[in-house]
């Protein structure tokens, strides 16, 4: 199952790349915010259908869960808004590098301290090497 999770994460990233490539032109013709709204609204409909037929979890948990664990959707929108605002100022390249570095560094902090309900797992040498390798890869891509 552990290998599968890594493959799932790789596929998730691949999907994200296809998504931004597919939406590139749409954003120019109907607007960035509108494209994002289309994505969230129609995505809700698709997931609503999937949930209706295949949902095995407990949606009513929403009412019992601590309120901070409900902010995932809003965080996603804040992320997209920040990107839409910053790209015209600093360009796509720098935006992507800064986003990825922010994401990796914050992931390290969250996991090390076990914030936001995630399992705490100490930073070790290997994880630091992994992050350094990623930063080198980013520099190579963006030169």
């Amino acid at each position: 199952m552990r290998y599968f999770s890594y493959i799932f994460a790789l596929l998730a990233g691949a999907a994200l790349s296809f998504e931004s490539a597919l939406y590139g032109d749409l954003g120019k013709s109907i607007g960035e915010l509108e494209t994002t709204f289309y994505n969230f609204a129609v995505g809700s409909l698709i997931l609503g259908l999937i949930w209706l037929f295949f949902g095995k979890g407990k949606l009513s948990y929403t009412m019992e869960a601590p309120k901070w664990s409900l902010i995932g959707g809003i965080l996603g929108v804040v992320y997209l808004l920040s990107i839409v605002i910053s790209v015209p100022f600093v360009g796509v390249g720098i935006t992507m590098v800064a986003v990825i570095i922010g994401q990796i560094v914050m992931s390290m902090i969250i996991e090390h301290f076990g914030w936001l309900g995630s399992a705490a797992s100490r930073i070790n040498k290997e994880k630091v090497f992994a992050v350094l390798s990623m930063i080198i890869a980013l520099i190579l891509i963006n030169q």
Binding site: G76, Y79, S82, I83, S86, G102, M106, I110
Partner: peptide, 13 residues
């Protein structure tokens, strides 16, 4: 933009 990356990792957690 760094902040945008922070919100994304917070979202996944």
């Amino acid at each position: 933009t760094l902040f945008a990356g922070i919100t994304l990792s917070a979202q996944s957690a």
